[in-house]
């Protein structure tokens, strides 16, 4: 059987980056959580978000609303950071651009998570 590796890869002899399995499992575990959480969260959100400030704030601040929002958004932000990482790795060729976008992806996900955490806790008081 012929070896399909590039000469450079053969010389380096590093094999894979060795973190693929952990990434794969994390993506699946968050997916399983989201199958349950996301429909519940979005249906509740759609029912409560459209009727003005008071109702929306009261729902997000309620025990069920706050916990459901935090669970769903935490799983979603984690899952989408992992997912977009793969998209960037697949399509962005230039190493500097790739690294910059991977870092930006992490910052966006982390930043949004803190913003959501603060907002929901502020409304729940």
């Amino acid at each position: 059987m012929s070896d399909f590796r590039t000469p450079l890869a053969r010389v380096r002899g590093l094999g894979s980056a060795k973190s693929g399995t952990g990434h794969f499992i994390a993506q699946r575990v968050s997916a399983i959580a989201l199958v349950v959480l996301m429909p519940l969260f979005l249906i509740k959100l759609a029912k409560n978000a459209g009727a003005g400030y008071a109702e929306a704030a009261a729902w997000v601040g309620s025990p069920l609303g706050a916990i459901l929002t935090l669970l769903a958004m935490t799983a979603a932000l984690y899952h989408m950071r992992l997912g977009l990482q793969v998209v960037i790795e697949d399509y962005i060729y230039r190493p500097a651009t790739k690294a910059a976008l991977l870092i930006l992806n992490t910052f966006v996900a982390a930043g949004l998570w803190i913003a959501v955490l603060y907002s929901v806790l502020a409304l729940a008081r």
Partner: peptide, 10 residues
Amino acid sequence: LVSVWLVLLA
């Protein structure tokens, strides 16, 4: 967008 909406609400 959902995150931004939550921040506006808070």
